[in-house]
Each structure stands twice: as C-alpha cells, then as structure tokens.
Write a protein that binds this DNA or RNA. Structure first.
Lengths: 205, 205
DNA sequence: GACCTTCTCACCTACGTGTTAAGC
DNA sequence: TCGCTTAACACGTAGGTGAGAAGG
C-alpha cells in the first residue's frame, strides 16, 4: 500500500513524500471477512494497529500526525445469516473528532526514523473526555491520516487513507471468524488462545 | 522551591519564566537522610520522581526539556557506620548524557498546562542503548533541567537545578531508612509495604 | 422474542519494586 | 573477608483481552 501525496502546489519541501501501510497482509486477512472493531464507553484500542512508514518529509520541519475515521457509506449495517448487509438509515453523522498522534508535534526526522504507530487511539460510542474517538456502532469506517506542518503557518501536507483498514464498529463481535483472528494475533487476547489450545489437547487425549 | 531564570539578554519572550519543583516536601524527607538512587544495567527509574511546573514560556513557541545530572563534588562516597563519608578519588567523569523529555519538542502552551514529570528517565551504570542516563555508583549527583527553544535557531532559555533532589547513585541501598521511605511512598514497592504490615499484625496477635 | 449494549470477570501483557543469594 | 555488583525472583501496579450474563 503506497501512496503519493496530493499536495499544495508550489511547495518545494515534501516532493517525494511517501506513506506505506505496515502489516498490510494482516489487515487484508481481517478485511477478507469484513473487519470489526469494538467500541466501548471507556474506549477500546484498535487491532490490528494502524501503523505507517513515512519518507520524504523535511527532516528539520515540524509536523503533527492526525487520525480520523471517515464513514464509507450512508447506511447502517446488520449481521444476518453470517453476512453483513446494509440496513436502514445511518445515525446523524457525529462530530468527526480527530486523534493527535502523541509524538506530535515533532521534526520530520523523528517521524521518518521509525514506523508511526497509532496503537493508543481508543474508539468509543459515547462522548467522553479527550483522547478518544467517537464512532457509531454498526457503521462502516475508513481510517484517514493527516500530516500537518506546524510551528509556523499551519499547512496540510497530505491526507491518506487505507482501504485495507476499513471496519464496522460494533459493541460485540458478530462474526466469529473475526473473533478467532483477534485472538490469534492480538497478544492481549492470549488467555483465550491458551484456552483453545487446552481444549484441543483434551480432544486429542 | 522557586527559581527565576538566568536568561540570555535582550530576549523579550520569556520575561516571567518561573520553575517550581513539585513534591518538594517528599524530596526533603529523602534528603534529610541522604537520598540514594539505584542504578542497574538495564536502567532504574528515579523515586521520588522529578516533576516541575513551568510558567512564563511563550505559548506559541517551541521548546524541548532536557535533564542531566551534575556531579556535586569530586570524590567517591562510602557508607560506614550508618553514615555517608567521602572516600577516595572519583571515577573519571563520564560523558554526561542528557535525557530528552518524551513530550519534546512541544509548544510552550503544552509545557505550561500541567506539571512536567520526568518519570520515565532510567539511571544505569553501564553504557547502553539510548534513553538511559549513565552515572557512576557511589558518586553524588544533582539533577539539572535545561529548557531549550527549538524550531528555529536553538537557544538555551534556562538551566535550573534542585538541591533537594541530590542523591548518591548506588547498586543496592545502603541506608535502611532510605529503603523504608522508598517502600512507604513508591506504589510499585507496595508488595513490601504489605509484607511489613503482615509482620506487624503477627506481632500484635 | 430478537437485537443490541453494558458490565463484571478471569486471564493475559508489560513492567516497576526491593529481596536475596551468588559472583567477583 | 569485605565491599560492591549482578541476576533471578515473588509480588505488586497498570491496563488490554474476549466471555458471558444481565439489561434495555
């Protein structure tokens, strides 16, 4: 997944700007069965984690990285007979809040020296204190990253989104294939992976 | 503990700069019995935590906060008969590395909106990967904070140190009064506080 | 009833403590 | 021996999981 920026014209400093989605193969596995992300009152992290590599920034200029979530369509979704299907009118679109990457603001050199991970963003279905992003359950979203130049006149450097990372917000997993993938790959769900292995040993003995 | 900056001359933007040490009373309790800080190969956090409140920065200017440790004298220390006494020549002074506060760089407004905590700095006695500060065991140090203006021509805005926070680096606690204070006030040592309480109940019963 | 949401829970990850015994 | 350092350890803090029962 590689993008080149739609940039402001006449800017000489970010000509070769490139953004690459990390763990694209993992994201693809979830997308194949329609990804779901839990939303809770207190906020739930995403898994997989949105992670990007960036090159082509001005190492000495200052940038902030923002994340928000765009609705991909204008209806609710419903899980019936093992399938997600469109269902009815959407909720009125909420204030699409934005998550500021905690390293922000920082120099281009900082953002380029390692992959940028949005591991700590939390998704919620209630209006809360800051640091959390409110989404409507049973709606489909696509994460979007915004790179903004700061520490001088602000200027949008790039917007980019990643179709592989689309998901439906839910309050509980609907598709058990998604549950299985989350348990298999998320270290924090290790307890349930172990439980499954114990059951298999029992079956074998 | 309140300081006013020794500033570069002719600078109009940080005229009322003020730095206050937080938890000064706690620091004082440790200092009364000569504070010690553990250094380990992989790095050990400080306790108490160095925490300061700052006002008088330019809210829209960009700053980084740096922490390093100055030797307070030129000899080793030794703990004999329940007392710290000077003992012999010091180690050759090492590269006095600097810890950059993880919120750096950031706007003045950010640094002023809440106390700035250096909770994550780790002290070590071995040359390691970055993020850790190497100190010589059995030498006495005083933490120093440096405020640097960045995102333009760099300029030192202020240096300040806090005598209350002086300590001797050790690989194991020497003074059991220090051990007791650490256990009493550091939540991460709760296990040993509980153990002590269990022993007291046993004595009573 | 069917669907969706909320809450509590056991079980993990990750890592910060002083203790203790061993090492040098 | 003595002084100092190291590494393994038990036991906390802090918080991220899906499961499952309860609620609306």
């Amino acid at each position: 997944s590689e993008l080149r920026a739609g940039r402001d014209k006449g800017d000489p400093t970010e000509k070769q700007l490139q953004v690459v989605l990390e763990d694209a193969t993992l994201w693809q596995r979830f997308r194949e069965v329609t990804n779901e992300m839990i939303v809770t009152k207190n906020g739930r992290r995403m898994f997989p984690i949105l992670k990007i590599s960036v090159s082509g920034l001005d190492p000495n200029a200052m940038y902030s990285f923002l994340l928000d979530f765009a609705l991909t369509d204008s209806h609710r979704w419903k899980y019936v007979n093992g399938e997600w299907v469109p269902a009815g009118k959407p909720e009125p679109p909420n204030h699409n809040c934005v998550y500021i990457h905690p390293d922000s603001p920082n120099f281009g050199a900082h953002w380029m020296k390692a992959a940028i991970s949005f591991s700590k963003v939390k998704l919620t279905n209630k209006l809360n204190g800051s640091g959390q992003i409110m989404l409507n359950s049973l709606h489909k979203y696509e994460p979007q990253v915004h790179i903004v130049r700061v520490g001088g006149p602000h200027r949008m450097v790039m917007n980019c989104s990643f179709p592989e990372t689309q998901f439906i917000a839910v309050t509980a997993y609907q598709n058990e294939e998604i549950t299985a993938l989350k348990i298999k790959y998320n270290p924090f769900a290790k307890a349930f992976l172990d439980a499954k292995e114990r059951n298999h040993s029992k079956d074998a003995s």
